[in-house]
Design a protein around this nucleic acid. Sequence first.
DNA 1: CTTAATTTTTAGGCCAATCTAAATTTTTAG
DNA 2: CTAAAAATTTAGATTGGCCTAAAAATTAAG
Lengths: 217, 217
Amino acid sequence: MNSFTEENYLKAIYHLGGEENTAVATNRIAELTSTKAASVTDMLKKLADKSLINYVKYQGVTLTGKGRQTAVNIVRKHRLWEVFLVDKLGFKWDEVHDIAEELEHINSAQLIDRLSDFLGNPKVDPHGDPIPDKNGNFHKTELIRLSAMEVGQSGTISGVSEHSTAFLQYLEKIGLTLGKIITVNDALEFDGSVSLTVNEKEITISSKVAKNILILL
Amino acid sequence: MNSFTEENYLKAIYHLGGEENTAVATNRIAELTSTKAASVTDMLKKLADKSLINYVKYQGVTLTGKGRQTAVNIVRKHRLWEVFLVDKLGFKWDEVHDIAEELEHINSAQLIDRLSDFLGNPKVDPHGDPIPDKNGNFHKTELIRLSAMEVGQSGTISGVSEHSTAFLQYLEKIGLTLGKIITVNDALEFDGSVSLTVNEKEITISSKVAKNILILL
DNA sequence: CTTAATTTTTAGGCCAATCTAAATTTTTAG
DNA sequence: CTAAAAATTTAGATTGGCCTAAAAATTAAG
């Protein structure tokens, strides 16, 4: 079994390398895990010894098949627990991240299978992020950024690409939550801000906010 | 915050000292935590520094108020998670201990409050052990050992004082599960075995089994 | 293409939790 | 009441994860 700490490094490498599994730099990992580069180097050696990553000195790392499988499984657990916290225990979507960060390290395949069934085998978490199945496969959906929509177009809010509490609380406040249908009324050239209709009301959001909302057309 | 390891020591001391908080010997703790006496001594010093235990060299330890509160809270979390695993996820009563052993260390008071509500604020876990409330108070019930019942007496199976998988599976198999009503038909003097009626059938159990079944009269 | 800036790794140490072996204290038996 | 046995503690070492400071490699700038 891998330690709690090893799991967090694998998860960090997975998130930084993305689905394409591009090489990840030591410093990026250090930032994400709130450690120092020297500590990361130590851990990379250990993970390479366990064949969880491909590591060439000074050249960054990628996950091996085994490493990716491990990382994706942690992501699966994290997201399923988030669904549990929101759907069953009544937490808000901005409150669940830290608790899921702990729950994701509980080790029991049976537990996760049963939890998934109990939740109705959800395909996305409360932020719209996809939940991989037990084989590590993602259900692919084509989402575009709200900022990329044309004037007049409609779509459903289906995810966010920024998960900070502040951002999520702001979206909640202005009514831009998962599943809401919106229509773009206008897009200002000069600052990228967007006017849109949601809940039969017109609101305007900044370019930065629009970039972090994901839409299913 | 206390580490995962510190929490396990406190829990061990709590279980060994019982509600009466009697002094616990180093070796007992070493057995229960699967460590060596020398390691226990090291940890006792640390816990004493944090005012979680009263420790006098060579004289064993007792929990302080603060230590007891911490230990009881872990017990509360453990038992609530066991209820969740059995009632909501469909695990059997003999399968939940190890998973709850991990879940009990998740730190979030809000999570536990909401979990308790979600489960209907249960007063006992799947083995009949009482679940303390958030202030650490137990709902007291008078249970007696099946071995102490008189011939002709009836009662409800309300707990067990031995939690091994093998024992729980045996009870399941012969139909002696929580909530079942039993009547004692006969108690053999020479080996302490007991004949009783459950589910309208008569069965005989050994003295040792009878001692570990707790009955509400 | 050489030097300066940046990134990464190495070297050497620290702390938590554990261990074995040896020393000390307490308990038990005769 | 003393000697042997048992329990406990101390001493010294190990491992995992982390750190700082210094060295080495890579990248960027002129």
